[in-house]
Amino acid sequence: MVLNGIKAVFFDLDNTLIDTSGASKKAIEEVVKLLINKSKFNEEEAHIICKDFQANLLHEAFDPTKLTIDDLRVLHFERAMQEIRSGDYKCLAKECYQLWKTKRLQLMTLSETTKNMLCELRKSTCLVLLTNGNRQVQREKIEACGANPFFDAIVVGGEHAEEKPAPSIFLHCCDLVAVKPEDCVMVGDNLDTDIQGGLNAGLKATIWLNKNTHVTSNPSPTPHYTIQSVTHLPDVLKNLQ
């Protein structure tokens, strides 16, 4: 495959290479069933607890010297339960979290078409996995989906001083595979981190994965290209000027 001078392609992980949202949704459904079958919470309360848990995932701040990410997320469940009804829910909260985490990781897979695409691309260019998030959480996802063999470098934002969209982490990726920013492309589903970050770092192009066909008009920031499936990427790269 001729890639017109592209020396590296940076890929986001969540909802780009793996369906994190879908895996999380299915895992939550299992937790709802557990709460209904093994506790005094009814269906409505179980959904409220899980909704609160998911909301807390979006605003996590903690001191890793005092608390692990696993402990924190058990607390999310425990506090959500206590909002419904007072009581000691430590064991139930831990069971819910372990079920959610285990099921979610089991569902995080690279499709065969995605694997084949990565293998073909890697014959012509360097591939870098660049993902934001807590070190432990992201490394567990990477291990679960078996991404390691497909990439020349893997960078987890939580292991660095800055995450996407900061230019520094993109430049770090460039250094790892010995390329210049203007010879690289960023592929991701998040406009604020993946696309803005690629623009901030001066990459050759940014490619937005937009699976929601209802959200296509005037995205901001503006990506150079938009695709509806990550497997459409090779066609864009072959025609990229």
Rank of each mutant, 00 (worst) to 15 (best):
G5K: 09
I6N: 02
A8T: 01
V9G: 01
F10Y: 10
F11R: 00
D12S: 04
D14K: 01
N15Q: 09
N15W: 06
D19L: 03
A27K: 00
I36M: 14
K40S: 15
N42W: 02
E43W: 09
H47A: 00
C50F: 05
D52N: 15
Q54I: 05
L57N: 10
H59G: 11
E60D: 13
P64F: 07
K66P: 08
V74Y: 10
E83R: 15
S86Y: 09
K90L: 11
L92Y: 01
A93P: 00
T102L: 02
K103R: 03
E112N: 11
N116K: 15
M117F: 00
L118T: 06
C119A: 12
L121Y: 01
S124W: 01
T125P: 00
T125Q: 04
L130W: 03
N132T: 02
G133T: 04
R135L: 12
V137P: 00
Q138P: 00
E140M: 01
K141N: 02
N148E: 14
V155E: 00
H160T: 01
E163R: 09
A166L: 08
P167V: 08
I169E: 03
H172D: 09
D175E: 14
K180L: 08
D183Y: 02
L191T: 05
D192R: 14
D192N: 15
T193N: 10
D194Y: 06
L199S: 12
L203G: 06
K211N: 07
H214V: 12
P223W: 08
P223E: 10
Y225V: 06
I227G: 01
Q228A: 14
H232A: 14
H232V: 10
V236I: 15
K238I: 09
